[in-house]
């Protein structure tokens, strides 16, 4: 090759490299994008610490790894799946809804339903007891005629 062509080839190479880096800089994942995924993950090593706030060097390495993966075009699901494969399920902030872990979602619904059912039953039994209870079962009978009682109650309600 002669000198001008060599120079041209070099120029072209530099130019293409520059544009590639420009494009990469534009596509390079922002901290926010990394955080969005890191928020859903927990630090594999520190106790109960989300990955986006963890201060250790290891966590910094993990966030850098997420950034690299995002830069290569990985989707969020792929990144999360990778983390689970590497570090186990405990790295997810929300357990997968499969198998045994589905219980954590089912049980509360069952508990609330059961609670409401019991509550309704209890209220009903109170209502029934009210209707069948003898009227004479009182501890203390005020010697005030019932009409006066009603009047007093009404006035009290209006005051309060």
């Amino acid at each position: 090759m002669n000198k001008p062509r060599l120079l041209l080839a070099l120029l072209a190479m530099v130019a293409s490299l520059y544009t590639v880096s420009l494009v990469q800089a534009q596509n390079y994942p922002t901290d926010d994008e990394v955080n969005a995924i890191a928020k859903k993950l927990y630090c594999p090593v520190c106790p109960n610490t989300p990955l986006d706030v963890c201060e250790t060097q290891a966590c910094a390495d993990w966030r850098a790894q997420i950034r690299d993966q995002l830069a290569e075009g990985w989707s969020e699901e792929q990144v999360m799946a990778y983390f689970v494969e590497q570090y186990g399920e405990r790295v997810l902030a929300e357990p997968e809804r499969s198998g045994f872990n589905s219980l954590i979602w089912i049980l509360p619904i069952v508990a609330v339903a059961l609670g409401l059912f019991v509550a309704v039953q209890v209220l009903r039994s109170w209502h029934r007891a009210q209707n069948t209870a003898a009227e004479s079962a009182v501890d203390f009978v005020p010697d005030v005629p019932p009409e006066t009682l009603v009047k007093i109650e009404r006035e009290l309600r209006e005051i309060a």
Partner: peptide, 27 residues
Amino acid sequence: FVVFLGTVFPLLSELVTGTKITVGPPY
């Protein structure tokens, strides 16, 4: 009950399935 379940579930899950899980704020 829900808070208790979420707090204790990692322990339960480890006993039953052998894998540790984390129950975090989203739940």
